[in-house]
Nucleic acid binder design. Structure first.
Lengths: 254, 254
DNA sequence: CAGTGGTCTAGACCACTGG
DNA sequence: CAGTGGTCTAGACCACTGC
């Protein structure tokens, strides 16, 4: 018997069988989404959740296994299970795939950041469409340059929906030290969970060339990233131009 | 007690505790490596393996879970567990991240292939180093062009160690229809398991420009892929130039 | 030491496939 | 229908953390 409160999923037209652990997973996901546990917090122990949901520890365990595999939770033996965050050393810059040709992945943390622009405007159609807004709704645009070893390397436009990010200012961005996604978590309660990137090679136009200190027409990596929060809700569109003369985009295929 | 034949891992200086299922995983991996089960074959059932290794089904299950997560095995409910292969519709071109801007991922299967060159030579230092060979050892170089909708889009050099790929000829490559990695499996017993890619934006030199029918200096995506078989042994170095005017490199971050 | 996650077992039952 | 993978349970014990 076990769990009369949960759906057993026996429809007629669609069998739609849903295992117990999937339902548990959904419940945990809802709590994450609702902000019941904040990034960095410990969630209740497996035994406690098992009790709460009237389920064996094994079922809870399998649910957490999947959430951990998706990097929504982090398990630490002997300590507990924690809500993942971009604020930690280990998971910092998890979405940044650019690394120096020398291979030293650590140096990305010591990038210099320069905010070129930060303004609020009515969303152009393409931006609105990507973010699931109506065109004309309020959005934030942040343009910035990242430099590695004094060399400007990334020029990017970051587009954010105006509603969830109400109150974001250039000075907040300038003063903050850690990763931008960590700021989003602590100040706006928005956690980026996954992202899609589309990459092309393009020639630098004169504006980009000036910012990145390369000749007009120099080849640059164009990286368009759409980042999502919980539940596949798009929350950020980022359009970057990367110099790749001393860096490369690294990708693991498996 | 369960398994006296397996290491219990209790050293003195290094505890080096290794769970049972990890040891099972290693044993299965060895069988895969040794070619005891070929790509596409069914491996023994979980119960049978549990009996063979003197272990519970759960331990075998967890080992297979991990191998399936790494795409080395594929589970099919009601049928069995199978050795993964590049020869199937579903997993074909798993390592090719280029897709048309229109989004139609299916069209990559209908690419036209043209072998420009296929020769055997003594490995240049950089190639030898990447493939873990001594410089001067025999390697195969294959240069080819892939076209989508009549438009040449990818120009690539493929470097293979001469030993494992003895007997590979241009005509074999030309006549073959399916994915190249499927040919490697069936003809040479080499299965590509994972790969690393390093991506840059470059300007087309005149040779590349001619092959890809773009102007000299046009921006191209440079994709260098190092592909590995079982046990992290490098088996292929691929250097590609991608046109990205109508296609993009798609990457999922999570 | 108590509390956490991690491993392992044994057994029951369910869902899916194919003969 | 038998055989396979998939789910769920209950309980024992291990490894790790911090008080």
């Amino acid at each position: 018997m076990g769990l009369p409160a949960l759906a057993d999923g026996q429809g007629v037209a669609t069998p739609a069988f849903s295992p117990l652990y999937q339902q548990i997973k959904s419940l945990i996901l809802q709590s994450l989404q609702a902000g019941e546990w904040k990034p960095g917090d410990a969630i209740p122990s497996e035994m406690e959740l098992a009790g709460r949901f009237r389920v064996s520890q094994g079922a809870v365990r399998k649910a957490i296994d999947e959430l951990a595999a998706e990097h929504l939770l982090v398990r630490r033996q002997g300590k507990g299970t924690f809500v993942a965050t971009h604020a930690e050393q280990h998971t910092q810059f998890r979405f940044l795939r650019l690394e120096p040709d020398s291979g030293d992945r650590a140096s990305v943390g010591s990038a210099q950041r320069h905010i070129v622009q930060c303004r609020r405007l009515r969303a152009p159609v393409d931006i609105a469409h990507a973010l699931g807004l109506r065109s004309g709704e309020s959005v934030l645009q942040v343009r910035r340059v990242l430099s590695f070893q004094q060399q400007p390397t990334i020029l990017e436009d970051i587009w954010l929906p105006g509603g969830p990010f109400k109150g974001l200012t250039a000075s907040a961005l300038t003063q903050d030290q850690g990763p931008m996604y960590a700021l989003f978590e602590s100040q706006f309660g928005v956690r980026m969970v996954r992202a899609d990137e589309k990459i092309k090679a393009v020639a630098a136009d004169s504006a980009a060339a000036a910012q990145l200190q390369v000749p007009d027409g120099a080849p640059l990596l164009s990286v368009e990233r759409l980042a999502y929060t919980y539940n596949d809700v798009p929350m950020e569109l980022r359009r970057g131009l990367y110099r790749t003369d001393h860096h490369h985009y690294h990708n693991q295929l498996s």
